[in-house]
Design a protein around this nucleic acid. Structure first.
Lengths: 214, 214
DNA sequence: GCATAGGCGGAGAGAAAGTCTCCGATTGGC
DNA sequence: GCCAATCGGAGACTTTCTCTCCGCCTATGC
């Protein structure tokens, strides 16, 4: 691939992630083109349809997420510290952009399946270790952590988005929330027993039952 | 106001809140019309332009938020419990839909100012009391709580939104996060000193510097 | 350096979506 | 039961979006 082509691809993927974050999976490609600062033809040449773009973006982000999971396991000895690091990394990547898109109806090819299962296993290892060490509430599962990361890392509506121009506030709030995941739910008054949310629960939830309209 | 007109208004406001939540403040009015199940003329007759709709919606939601703040102060003796109750109520109302819209450029009339300051004062009383009692981290302010509520109560992207069809998951995650706001940040490794985020900080952030285009 | 293949951006045609109004039918209030 | 107010749908007009053609430019190999 020529150097300028690689540069265009990078620009398009970065812009696509942000636009999908702000506008959802049906965002106009036109917006992506403009934010990337490339011509429309540049996008349509590489990606003949929307799905091929989504697929490339998903692979790109999932690959980086997998790397972050391994990095976290490698750097931190303490399981809970590693988990924290991973959740922060996922927020940095704005996984909210890709996970729902990935899960919905996208034809998942072999490479995506590989990187997805690898990531899930890496994260579940971290979670199991933290559960075993008693440093993570037993009713918190991977689904909960993923949702937390998605919810906290999505762009704020309207002008508030500016608060996240620098990611420090986001990470601070993530830290606050993570502080609530310790072993003893001290402060919760009436907490009914509850099973942790698994990753599969997310997949099931996102399985699209669309194409039902007339 | 005739009964059918009131019904239409209610339907439109409810639909508008959801659509603004999902699509942002520039969402097509067409969508609101369809979700409300009314004819286009019904919307355009009552609201000649987008701003009048936003204004009515904002007043409606802020009024309910103010009521929630007073209710929380009345029901709970413990300041932190009252604060928790209020944050949950704000999430129920999906204040994320209205606060940013309200703050941005909207011409704020006397009634909106009244209800807004009343709400802010009520909530700040709760926060001050919790700070005084030592049951709320000193570096957490109203801005933090509002952001937390906004972030956690916005609809999830794509099919994941179905997870919030019932609000229990949302409230559970909110509880987890609120558990992290206790007096002693036990688990945070390297927490730099930080001032609490005020409500005014949000207002300042959302103050739109738009109309900057060529 | 220079040739050249591959890539690039802009203009714009055609399609789709959104905005807003007119008008006959319907419905609520007295 | 009358009348005025409200309603919903059809549709004209506008804006936005999608996608392609084509002439210029730039990276790479020699």
């Amino acid at each position: 691939m020529r150097a300028d082509a690689a540069r265009s691809r990078r620009r398009i993927l970065d812009a696509a992630r942000d636009v999908f974050l702000e506008r959802g999976p049906d965002a106009p490609l036109d917006l992506i083109v403009r934010r990337a600062g490339v011509g429309p033809a540049t996008l349509y040449r590489r990606y003949p349809d929307r799905e091929s773009l989504v697929r490339d973006l998903t692979g790109d982000l999932l690959g980086r997420l997998e790397a972050a999971a391994h990095e976290a396991a490698r750097v931190d000895d303490d399981a809970y510290a590693a988990l924290r690091r991973f959740v922060h990394a996922a927020a940095d990547l704005r996984m909210g952009a890709v996970i729902p898109v990935l899960l919905e109806g996208l034809v998942v090819d072999a490479e995506l399946v590989r990187v997805r299962t690898a990531t899930v296993h890496a994260v579940e290892a971290l979670i199991d270790a933290a559960h075993a060490a008693g440093t993570l509430r037993p009713d918190v599962g991977m689904g909960d952590l993923v949702l937390l990361s998605i919810r906290l890392s999505r762009p704020l509506p309207g002008g508030l988005a500016r608060l996240d121009a620098d990611d420090t506030l986001l990470h601070h709030h993530l830290d606050l929330a993570l502080d609530g995941l310790g072993p003893s739910p001290i402060r919760t008054a009436a907490a009914p027993a509850r099973a942790p949310l698994s990753f599969d629960a997310l997949v099931t939830a996102a399985d699209r039952p669309t194409a039902a309209g007339p």
